[in-house]
Simulated scan of single mutants.
Amino acid sequence: MADEIAHTAPRPTVIIENRAACAGYETSVFFPREGDIATVEKAKDVCRRCPALRDCLMQALRIDDRFAILGGTTPSERQLIRRRLAVRQRELGVTS
């Protein structure tokens, strides 16, 4: 299943792709099987060294990716970020 998702997932923008530390890695590293903590940590390690980390995270939040390790975060971590952002926006009275 992870392979199917990896092949149909949105690709990073060209700007991100040209700077990404993950270029050249097997896609499966960034689409770990559920519970595969070692692969998640390997992907996050690559992300931590990436000059496109911030841009990649912003794109992952925009496209609401629910499968890949992107921008150094798992899908559940990004879901938490989105929730916190929504709370903060409400506190500030910002509308979408």
Rank of each mutant, 00 (worst) to 15 (best):
A2M: 14
D3M: 06
E4Q: 10
E4F: 11
E4S: 08
I5M: 09
A6D: 02
H7L: 13
H7A: 11
P10V: 01
R11D: 15
R11V: 13
T13H: 10
V14S: 11
V14A: 13
V14G: 01
V14I: 12
I15A: 13
I15Q: 08
I16D: 08
I16G: 05
I16M: 04
I16N: 09
E17Q: 11
E17P: 01
E17H: 11
N18C: 01
R19M: 05
R19K: 08
A20F: 02
A20K: 05
A21K: 15
A21F: 06
A21P: 10
A21V: 09
A21Y: 09
C22I: 02
C22Q: 07
A23P: 00
A23G: 14
A23F: 09
A23V: 15
G24K: 04
G24N: 01
G24Q: 02
Y25K: 12
Y25I: 04
E26P: 13
T27L: 15
T27M: 15
T27Q: 15
T27Y: 11
T27W: 11
F30T: 09
F31L: 01
F31I: 01
F31S: 01
F31C: 05
P32E: 10
P32G: 06
R33T: 08
R33W: 01
R33I: 05
E34A: 15
G35D: 03
G35A: 02
D36M: 05
I37Q: 15
A38E: 12
A38S: 14
T39V: 15
T39L: 13
T39M: 14
T39W: 04
T39H: 08
V40Q: 06
V40E: 05
E41I: 04
K42A: 14
A43R: 06
A43V: 05
A43G: 04
K44I: 07
K44D: 00
K44E: 02
D45T: 12
D45Q: 08
V46F: 02
V46N: 08
C47R: 00
C47W: 00
R48G: 05
R48Q: 14
R49P: 06
C50M: 03
P51W: 01
A52R: 01
A52T: 00
A52D: 00
R54I: 10
R54T: 13
D55Y: 04
C56A: 04
C56R: 03
C56S: 04
L57C: 05
L57T: 09
M58C: 10
Q59S: 10
Q59V: 06
Q59E: 15
Q59D: 13
A60K: 07
A60V: 10
A60Y: 12
L61D: 11
L61T: 05
R62Q: 14
R62E: 15
R62L: 12
R62P: 00
I63L: 10
I63E: 14
D64T: 08
D65P: 06
D65G: 13
R66F: 08
F67Q: 07
F67L: 02
F67S: 14
A68W: 03
I69Q: 03
I69E: 05
I69P: 02
G72E: 01
G72C: 03
